[in-house]
Structures are given as C-alpha cells and as structure tokens.
C-alpha cells in the first residue's frame, strides 16, 4: 500500500545514480518496493514512475512481465517448487503434490495464516540437485518429503530467519560504489573514446595498489 519510505528512497536514489538512463532502475526499484512491503503496491509503482520519469502504465508494463513481482500480498514464505524437466523426471511433481497436501493449499495459493505460498515454477538452475525448491529464493537441493516438512515446521515455529529473510528480500548485501573510486556513468549521448584504447595503459605497477 505504500510509496517507498525515506530509507528506501535514499537507497533508490543511490541505485538510480548508477545508471546512465534512469529508467534502467525500474526493476531494481520494483525489487526495493517488494522488499519493503512484501509485494509491489500500486502506490509504489506510481512512486517508481515519478522516480524514473516514466508513467505508472510503463512501470506496470514492466512489473507485470516478470514473475517474481507480486502485485498482491503473498505468504511470508514463497515456496517455489521446480517441476521442469530435470526435476519432473526426478520427482519434482510428487514433491509439489506433497507440499500441497502438507500445507493444505494448491499451487498458486497462500495458507490461511499468511505464512506460505506455493508456486509450481520453471527451472531454477539446480538441475543436478533435483528435486529442488526455493523458499524466498533460498535453495533446498535434493529435498525429500520429510526434509520439506522439517523446513516448514522450522519456519512455522519462527526458526531459520537468518537463513531465510521475509519474502521480498533478495540480496542482503548491497553494492556500494565508493565515490572516490567511481569511474562514473557512461553517458550514451556520447563520451569520447576511452583514453586507454587510443593510448594504451602504461605497464601496471607490480602488486596491487595500496
């Protein structure tokens, strides 16, 4: 329901500053909004449109293209079970059915307590570790039904919060480009040929720069 708060607005401005064209920040800012609220609220999209000098329709156009962006609240834990080919033939669909029975919901829906949402997802790049799943995009490889139940029980009882932040949070480490080290954005409107191309770099000093 919310626009970006002051802290996130500051983060948003830092993110925007890293792109030669501010519209490029649209997806990072949508992630930021989802981190703030657990989903991407309508107000947040309007706020992002203001920040990226676009229209809300454009932000929604981008937002709705990508599956990770939820425009309605989902569970605190989003359980993404892969059923794509490598997982399918190694028991991914059976794992999905177990999860559905165990949590008492169908894929695509959320438990009544708002804790869990199950999704039947496409390949998540853990094919040799099938069947696999992600909870809030943290991997669980070669997971058995019992292991699944155990993780769910832990999460229900408030455990594993270090391992798995609430839905919306991806990387808990952010990139920061130190001002004194920044090379600066390359303006597409035109910058000259980089110096090192025409005048090759002098031989690097031995060892690293202090």
């Amino acid at each position: 329901m919310a626009r970006l708060d002051d802290t996130n607005l500051a983060t948003a401005k830092e993110i925007i500053s890293r792109y030669p064209r501010i519209k490029s920040a649209t997806i990072p800012l949508l992630h930021l909004a989802q981190e703030q609220d657990g989903y991407v609220a309508t107000d947040a999209m309007e706020h992002i449109a203001e920040l990226t000098n676009t229209t809300p329709a454009q932000v929604l156009g981008t937002c709705s293209f990508y599956e990770m962006f939820k425009r309605e609240p989902v569970g605190k834990y989003l359980v993404n079970i892969c059923t794509n080919i490598s997982c399918q033939i190694m028991g991914g669909e059976e794992l999905l059915h177990h999860a559905e029975e165990s949590l008492g919901i169908k894929g695509g829906s959320t438990t009544a307590d708002g804790l869990f949402t199950i999704e039947d997802v496409e390949c998540i790049a853990a094919c040799t570790e099938a069947p696999c799943l992600q909870i809030n995009y943290r991997y669980f490889h070669k997971i058995s039904n019992d292991q699944f139940d155990e993780v769910i029980a832990d999460l229900r009882s408030g455990g594993r919060t270090d391992e798995i932040p609430p839905h919306g949070t991806l990387a808990r480490i952010r990139q920061h480009i130190p001002a004194d080290r920044a090379a600066g954005n390359a303006d597409p409107a035109g910058i000259p040929e980089p110096i090192w191309l025409s005048a090759p770099a002098t031989a690097p000093p031995e060892g690293e720069k202090a």
Binding site: R18, A182, A183, G184, P194, W196, A199, A201, P204, K209
Partner: peptide, 9 residues
Amino acid sequence: IYGTEFSVD
C-alpha cells in the same frame, strides 16, 4: 585501475 588510464564501473 592500478594507476593506469583504464577506468570502468
């Protein structure tokens, strides 16, 4: 980078 003219973010 390393004191050269090479700069990139």
